[in-house]
Structures are given as C-alpha cells and as structure tokens.
Amino acid sequence: MTSFKVLVKILLTALLAYLFQTMLPWWSIVIASSTISFIISTKGFSSFVGGFLGIGMLWFLMATIIDIQTDSILTERVAGIFSLPNNWLLILITSIIGGLVGGFGALTGSYFRSWVMPTE
C-alpha cells in the first residue's frame, strides 16, 4: 500500500511540477512536491523519496529527451564548461539537483501535515 502511494505521489509530483514550471520559475517544484506530499500522507522518509524521485525523474526525462533531440549539442558544451567527463553526468547532476529540492520540499510538506493534522 505504501509503495503504491509513493508511486502515485511520484507521478503526481512530476505532473504538477511540470505544470507549474511552464508558468513559474524553477523553484515552483518545491510548491509542487510539498503540496502533493501534504495531500497524500506518507512517512517522512517515503515523502522525501516521493519528492526526490518525482522531480528527479521529471528533470531526468526532460533533460534526456532534449539531449537526444538536439544531438547533445549543448549538453556537450555545458558538460565541458563544468569539466565533466561525459554528458550523462550532466543529466545526472541535473536530476539530483532537481531531486534534492523536490525531496526537501516533499519532506517539508509532509512535516507540515503532521504538525497541523496531529490526529493521524
């Protein structure tokens, strides 16, 4: 049950974050992950994982699609600027950065829920 819940959270977080991001700055991913985590209750660690994977996977997928569609033209240059040995590492770093922010956002949302709805 918990793993199903986490899966739903991951998908919903990714979806909401994508919607927010088309209109708002990048940090709107925090709003997405914390909101989803607030609505669907899970334990702290599961919340973090949900947010981390939701945003991390969203960013991973989008970066990968762009990378493939554009023959890595800009990925390669930016990887070079950051002295990274290959393009995948840049995509990975992108995903982890997004994931971290999403994860902490989700954690915050989940802790907010257990503070304001202590009955659970």
Binding site: Q21, M62, I66, D67, I73, L74, I93, V101
Partner: peptide, 30 residues
Amino acid sequence: IVIALNKKIGSIPPLGKFLDPVNGFWANAE
C-alpha cells in the same frame, strides 16, 4: 537550498535555475 541554487557563486551559475530543463540552459538547445 533553493536560495543557494538560485544564486551565482564565483563562476558557477545558479545551479537550480541554470539546470532546470524547462527554463534553464536546456531550453536553449535547438
């Protein structure tokens, strides 16, 4: 974390803002 990733530090661009695949540098790949 958000503030740190939204800020240029030395010659490193603001990582969150810059690496965001929707609005960051990825959006410049054609």
